[in-house]
Nucleic acid binder design. Structure first.
Lengths: 246, 246
DNA sequence: CGGTGATTTGACAATATTCAAATTCGGTGG
DNA sequence: CCACCGAATTTGAATATTGTCAAATCACCG
């Protein structure tokens, strides 16, 4: 009998945010064999060009996928939080076309592709759910294309913060409209396709508008409706199952 | 016995570009029930907010997925060509978070979700292949984030043209480094997050550099190596099975 | 406290946008 | 076959947004 892994709690919470799980499915997820690991801040978890035979579940921390252009500029492609399998696509695209890096120290749990495949064979609905998860991933990429391509800097930043709040709330990491945002303005700049200087100015403006406030590394949303309006934010693209309090 | 549908040739060619198909799989694809339809230029095929129960195979033409921002600006998210199932994601994300529109008159073949599900049940490898296809879709979105977020306009346009050439060549729509590009500069602008005026200037520069030439609506790549270099183009992210002549 | 990294500020430059008008292209009808 | 029409492309000038560089201040951690 395999052990029950407490690290899967985050994963189960995440999957429950996008679909319903049966007790059998939950139990099967809890029995997934895991290889635990911690990585320091600014370390690559998987690098562009690598051939993957396992997927990386973020148990705790804050990670991102990114690419470096020929000109040496970094573009962050997505942020990943507790419960995310950040490189689920490696199941069918074994060579990495981007890197996965830790933005702060992270607790990780690696799952062998073979174990995932066995799980999906035994529980086809979980297979569909994992597929759905990668499709939501893609929906987020699409919104980022819109954000970076067509929204001015202030709107862009508001939108990104809205997305983070909703995603973090889905896995119960938001309390009273406040959450940990343990990244630098330079990281945010690389996510939004802006310079760090400009992010700083836009961040100040969001604060002057009374929409947000920083208390150290925790971000408090002071005016959720205002932030959503400023960010033109519509959470449909996150395809959450529980649509409460959006 | 179901009929064999010639419209599936494009789909089969496309799928063969990203994986190998067995004769049985090919035969099963050819028997897929199709609803044929044609749409005029600038018509929506599926609109944001719609609930989908079928997927749209592009048999011929040129389509795009797009979003309109609150400020009324359009961001094109992807271009779709012969052989693409442009909204395969609707299989697991039934409400559309973006629209699918025809850029020129298109021949379409709609496939019911139920028929696709039956096909995948009978041929699990095809299920994996469709999943893989949506993952490549996501990989393209990621590259577009990089393109729009971190590459200057000239590089951005070169990269987009490289991508189109490689994708079109994979379905045998490129002859002698030339292909049909039946879209306006305004369409390209909306794909790259630029203004139409700037696209015009950048297009002129690519021509002055001797990298490309237009003959009406057909684009001829005069210097493929140069265009790849200018566009910082690495086709890995397209995850093609046949890597010849990249 | 001291030092390192993050944030903030200011001045200036570069890139891209907007607006408006001119030109070219492609198709259509006389 | 040519004239004409609307759409697409091209051009120019002025403007806006964002980037770059450099320095100053702030904040956290040992």
């Amino acid at each position: 009998m395999e052990a029950i892994h407490p690290q899967t709690i985050a994963l189960i919470r995440k999957l429950e945010s996008i679909a319903h799980l049966t007790p059998e499915e939950t139990a099967a997820l809890q029995r997934l064999p895991l290889h635990l690991k911690t990585v320091a801040a600014d370390q690559d978890i998987v690098s562009e060009g690598d051939t993957a035979s396992e997927c990386c579940l973020i148990v705790a921390g804050f990670a991102c996928r990114y690419n470096i252009t020929a000109a040496g500029k970094r573009q962050i492609l997505s942020f990943h939080i507790s419960g995310d399998i950040a490189d689920l696509q490696s199941l069918h695209l074994t060579v990495m076309d981007h890197s996965l890096g830790a933005l702060i120290p992270c607790k990780l749990a690696f799952i062998q592709h073979d174990d995932l495949r066995a799980l999906m064979r035994a529980h086809p609905r979980l297979g569909d759910l994992f597929w759905r998860d990668t499709l939501i991933d893609a929906a987020v990429f699409r919104q980022w294309v819109v954000n970076v391509g067509r929204r001015p800097a202030l709107t862009r930043m508001a939108h990104l913060l809205c997305e983070l709040l909703v995603r973090l709330r889905a896995v119960e990491l938001v309390e009273d409209h406040a959450f940990d945002l343990p990244v630098t303005q330079a990281d945010l700049a690389d996510a939004m396709g802006l310079s760090n200087v400009h992010v700083n100015r836009v961040s100040q403006e969001l604060r002057k508008l009374g929409l947000i406030a920083f208390q150290g590394k925790t971000l408090r949303v002071l005016d959720w409706e205002g932030l959503k309006t400023t960010g033109e934010f519509d959470p449909t693209y996150l395809h959450l199952a529980k649509k409460d309090a959006l």
